[in-house]
Design a protein around this nucleic acid. Structure first.
Lengths: 246, 246
DNA sequence: CGACGCTTTGACTATACTCAACCCGTGTGG
DNA sequence: CCACACGGGTTGAGTATAGTCAAAGCGTCG
């Protein structure tokens, strides 16, 4: 239980610069153009939003926020990956999701709660755009179509979260792993060989189990001829239907 | 596994009438005035929304929607209670939440998915107001402040859902039950005696366990002097701190 | 009253967690 | 360049937690 949280003295936000749209956009433009919630807007509106955005960089292991931090901005990932996790009442760590470029977080607190309840931490070097709560609020009131996009994203997340809840509540570990592999495959455009998006420790946390169980169950699936463990993070799916009926 | 789904031949939506605001409002007005997402609006706007709303009644056991049904409206509960549940890949039933007057559902599908993935079923006689997807969309674009309300509600739901996920993934059944009792108490304005909001079978489904385990664990908590089972649905909390540290 | 469904209790079993040891790959420093 | 330390990963043995199945109790509703 001791190594579950590696509290750092402070927030250590390395670089920090405005990415105004007139700046010779290195990642300034990229951080917004690919964001689903904005990409339907006109150029003029994009420019307006741009001017409200501030870009931050995080090194591997640095935190965007932690439980108890006041939640006053939306974070949009433009590069790298961010993991969102929380601690259960018991102190155990639970990985909730991994953000990739285009995904956002911080919204929970933005609209309802006052402080964050979860951790957001870069699992590799990442750059992130932020908008302050008040600016975002104005933006949503001024351009209602953005709200619809955010609502759409939220409802998708809710769907996912409820599906995950259901799996934890009703499926065995082996099944959860199988379903996880299948989802990885869907994301990796149907190639038969998948690359695990996280290490096994995190995978265990995400799937509500232990690294030991992951190890054992993967070995069982391999023995059953359903998969083949190519390397530490690479797995080849041999029998999709078999996996589905685990 | 057989009795988990009791498929009914059709949707059996009993009464069905428009609740136009000029109609001699029996439950017509009540169905909207107490809805959090609308209650900040002016009377004129309320009237406008009223005219878009259609009210339905459901008898105990009737379904508002089922998985596979096209999702084309938002449902707002004005009377009674509705349970939302889904089936896991394995076929096991999982109770997700219970709606009370003022709560709404159907939104997932409204904004992103095309069809429902869960069941919505009245657990007691209920009346429900609905707005069609297209009308709601127009409404949100016209009155952006409604979107903010819905976003706030969504983010709260997401928070809840992620908390629940974490509990399933990391806490023991006994702990989940204890936390559930505590939440019931919070809702029942701190009285030491709580009324369970559902029967034990549903409670088991909601907490991701079995009726047998609920029975046993409650007995253990009673033996430990933390609670007292007054009657089937009434429980007296004897030692709150004890419960918290289970 | 009887039937049905929910609840409880008991005995048994399976699933997966814990703890401990060991292995392996990587990155660091001598 | 090698040795070593470190973290993650794997394997094994033992155990706890909670699920299953079966039977019986209890309440309610027709």
């Amino acid at each position: 239980m001791g190594d579950q949280i590696d509290r750092k003295p402070e927030h250590n936000q390395a670089r920090c610069h405005h990415c105004h749209h007139h700046a010779s956009g290195t990642d300034g433009d990229s951080c917004i153009s690919l964001v689903p919630i904005f990409n339907h807007l006109e150029q003029a509106q994009m420019d307006e939003i741009m001017s409200l955005i501030r870009s931050l960089s995080f090194k591997k292991g640095e935190s965007l926020y932690r439980p108890g931090d006041p939640a006053n901005s939306l974070y949009i990932v433009s590069e790298g990956r961010i993991k969102i996790y929380r601690l259960a009442e018991s102190g155990k760590e639970q990985l909730l999701r991994v953000l990739r470029p285009g995904d956002f977080t911080g919204e929970l607190a933005l609209f309802s709660e006052k402080v964050h309840e979860s951790y957001a931490e870069a699992i590799e070097a990442a750059s992130v755009c932020t908008i302050a709560r008040s600016e975002l609020n104005d933006l949503l009131l001024k351009y209602p179509s953005i709200s619809l996009k955010v609502l759409s994203e939220f409802s998708h997340r809710l769907e996912q979260s409820e599906k995950q809840t259901t799996r934890f509540a009703t499926e065995r570990v082996e099944t959860r792993i199988a379903l996880f592999l299948i989802e990885c495959m869907d994301n990796a455009n149907q190639s038969t060989e998948i690359e695990l998006p996280m290490n096994k420790k995190d995978m265990a946390s995400y799937l509500g189990t232990t690294p030991e169980s992951i190890s054992r169950k993967l070995a069982e699936l391999e023995d059953a001829g359903l998969i083949q463990q190519v390397s530490n993070k690479k797995i080849r799916i041999l029998d999709l239907d078999g996996l589905l009926s685990v």
